[in-house]
Amino acid sequence: MMERFYNPVFVKELKLRFRSFKSFSGLMFYLAVICIFIAGFLLITTGFTGKGFFKPETSFMMFAVLTILQMALVLFITPSLTAGAISSEREKQTLNILLTTTQSSTQIIVGKLLSSVAFLVLMLIAGLPLYSLVFLFGGVSPSQLISIFLFYLLTVVAIGSIGVMFSTITKRTIVAMISTYGSIIFLGGITAFFFFLTVAFHQMGNTALGTTTSYMAYFWASINPGALMLTLTSSSMGDALAQVSGVELPVWISYLIVYSLIIVFCLTIAIKKLRANMKSNR
C-alpha cells in the first residue's frame, strides 16, 4: 500500500534538502527574523506604555504584523527552494538520466514541488511556538490562526508551482529565479499598486463610496496576499474593501479560486514541458 504512494523524487529531494547547510541556515534565518521582530515588538510596546503590561489590542496588532511579515518571508524564501527544481537537475546533468526512468512527468514534478512545500511547512511549524506567543496575551482566536496557516499553505503551493514551472521551461536556474521573483513582485506589489490606482480612478467618477461596483479594484485586492492576510486578521478590513469595491464576496473565496487556478495552470505547463523534446510527455 505504502509503495503505491511512494514518490522517489520526493524522498530523494527531502534527503538532499535536509542534508544541505543552506536549508539549515535558511530555517535559522527565518526563525531569527521572527524572534527579533517579536522581541523588538514586545520591548517597544511595553517601553512606550511604561506600565510593563500588554493589552489584547496590542497583542492583536502584533499578530497582524507578524502575519504579514511571515507571509513576506514565505514569499521571499519559496522561489529559492523551487526555482531550481528542474533547471538545477539540467545544470548538474542529472535530468536526462531521471527522464529515462519509468517515473511519469507528473510524479517528477509533484515530487519536486512537494519536497519544497514540505520544507516550507516545516518552517511554518518551526515558527509556530513563536507565533503562539500571541495566545498568551489574547485577542486572537485559534480558528483565525488555522485559517491563516491554510492560506499560507495555499500561497506556498501556488508560488512553488510558479517556481517549478519557470524551472522547467527555462534552462538556467538564475533565469527561473528572477522570473519567479518577478511573479511575486507582481502578485504582492504591482497588484496593490493597481488596486489603489483603480480605486482612485473609480472614486474620480463617483462622488459617494459604495454607490457603484468596481470589479477591477476587487480583483486586484483578491489576488494580493497582503490584502488577503489583512482581511483574514481583521474583519473591518474586509468590510472596508467591500465598501470601496462594492463587491460583497469575501476576498478569501476569490483568492482560493485564483490561486488554485494558478497551481493547476503552472503544474500543467511544467508537466507538459518536462519532456519537451519528446512528442509524448508520458
Binding site: P8, K12, K15, L16, Q93, N96, L98, T102
Partner: peptide, 25 residues
C-alpha cells in the same frame, strides 16, 4: 541508458543513489 556526460547528486551515498533509481523504476 548511460549518457556521455552525466552528473551525480552531491549529498547522496552510493547505496542511496542506487536505491533512488531502483525506486524510480
Amino acid at each position: 541508458y548511460m549518457p556521455d556526460f552525466f552528473g551525480v547528486y552531491d549529498q547522496l551515498k552510493v547505496d542511496e543513489y542506487l536505491d533512488f533509481y531502483g525506486a524510480s523504476y
